[in-house]
Amino acid sequence: MFDDLRDLYQEVILDHGRRPRHGSRLAAYDASAKGDNPMCGDRVQVFVRHDEGGRIAEAGFEARGCAISVASADLMAETVAGRTDDEVRELAGRFRDMARTGEAAGEDAAIERLRPLAGVHEYPSRVKCATLPWHALLAALDGKGEASSE
């Protein structure tokens, strides 16, 4: 019945939406921000810990939201580990373009890992579900406490 929805709800999304690997508050973190989608009530808080060289050692999150937003937060936490803030900002820009258009620049491992979320571009009301965790992450890196998907 829902065959045409498999582009949106790929197995990797259902899996990470159901069993996120990074879905908890970090014991120690140096940056954090909340993201809020006032339209639907989705909320996420992202936690980041940097290593001494300034790279992200670990990212985690607490979320209340749909399968898309939780899976997106989880894949985000996975892909940003080991990267600098500037690398994360660049990746976030490409992810946002992909969520909106379905197309992503580059074929590096990070964007390929996020590519299952590209299907969201066909569902305009759900694009913000995928991008909300990234808004929160960028707010955390920029030292802002809160981000909105608006």
């Binding site: 829902f2 929805l5 939201g65 399968a67 569902y123 759900r126 579900c129």
Partner: peptide, 13 residues
Amino acid sequence: RAHAHDVATLLDR
């Protein structure tokens, strides 16, 4: 096991 938004998207289809 299903968020309301996901339910609504599947119903919409």
